[in-house]
């Protein structure tokens, strides 16, 4: 055995302070954190698409994507939906409370290498819009570097559509095409957006595939039905990106939990192209 050099504790979280809390829907919330140790905060860097392991002391940890892009530094944000023990505990936090964070982990979206100069199509379903939003926020911050930007944000009901205020701002912009959609039956009388499932609406929108990149995230069933639509629209699979989630514990390829076949979501992902997805066994 060659003894590796002494290392830091991989599982020791940074101590963070809750700076702001914003409810996106009745069960989706965004929390903004700052590092207790300002020096760590200043030197901390990440890329859109990377994730962190966020924890409540005494309750446990969960992986979420870092929600604010590196073009909006100075804080760490994450958006989560109430589901289990940890997200319940996260919802109990108030501004000023402390929590833990480890990261950044995983591979980011290749914005610099593959997105620049292209038209971009973003598709998010439910809480799945959160990691997609990180990418479009970065691209909007660097607007001049990209072609047309289309965003489809779909949710079950109007009340379940996150980022409403931000959406209103986006809708007012001339350089973005924003489409909001809800599932049939999820609309209100005042609803002016689309009604239908994300794959069907995408088909109607039929964004041109030439020179375009698509980013999709949502529940497994949505991704399953959206990828064939993109393929029908002739988006080359290597230009279609998604970000997978799996149950994770360590975030660094040790705990053996998040693999899909040979690929570890925490190390090889969470960002995968549709080409890579096709190579994965049906185990996610």
């Amino acid at each position: 055995m060659t003894a590796p050099r002494p290392a830091d504790n991989l599982y020791l979280p940074h101590l963070m302070i809750v700076d702001a809390i914003r409810d996106e829907t009745p069960d989706i919330r965004t929390i903004r954190l700052r590092f207790c140790d300002e020096a760590v905060g200043k030197s901390f860097s990440w890329q859109s698409g990377q994730f962190g392991i966020f924890g409540v002391f005494g309750e446990g940890e969960c992986p979420f994507c870092i929600a604010n892009p590196p073009t909006r530094p100075g804080a760490i944000e994450f958006t989560f939906k109430l589901a289990g023990r940890v997200t319940r505990a996260l919802r109990d936090l108030d501004v000023g409370d402390q929590m833990g964070f480890r990261g950044p982990y995983g591979r980011p979206f290749p914005i610099q290498e593959k997105f620049r100069g292209r038209h971009l199509v973003f598709i998010g379903g439910g809480i799945g819009i959160a990691p997609v939003r990180t990418v479009y926020l970065e691209c909007l911050d660097r607007r001049a570097e990209f072609g047309e930007i289309t965003i489809l944000n779909a949710a079950r009901t109007v009340a379940d559509l996150p980022f409403a205020a931000e959406s209103a701002e986006l809708a007012a912009r001339k350089d973005v095409r924003l489409i909001l959609a809800v599932d049939p039956g999820g609309q209100t009388p005042e609803w002016s957006g689309r009604v239908g499932l994300a794959p069907a609406i995408l088909k109607e929108l039929a964004p041109p595939a030439a020179g375009a990149v698509a980013v999709v995230c949502g529940p497994p069933v949505m991704i399953k039905f959206t990828l064939p639509v993109l393929s029908e629209l002739e988006f080359p699979a290597e230009n279609v990106y998604t970000t997978l989630e799996n149950r994770m514990k360590c975030g660094v390829g040790k705990c053996g939990r998040c693999n899909v076949g040979r690929e570890y979501v925490c190390k090889d992902g969470p960002v995968f192209t549709a080409v890579q997805l096709r190579g994965l066994p049906n185990d996610f």
Binding site: Y11, G55, V56, F57, G58, E59, G60, E61, C62, A83, G84, V86, T87, E245, N246, R247, K249, C250, K254, C255, G256, R257
Partner: peptide, 30 residues
């Protein structure tokens, strides 16, 4: 392995425990 938080609220511990891919909760999402 699993990572879990246990112990009293004022002195909790994060513990690494053996875990098994054979158990149905291993990969169960919330």
């Amino acid at each position: 392995f699993d990572l879990v938080d246990e112990g009293p609220a004022y002195h909790s511990e994060r513990r690494r425990n053996w875990d098994a891919c054979q158990m149905k909760n291993f990969t169960l999402h919330a």
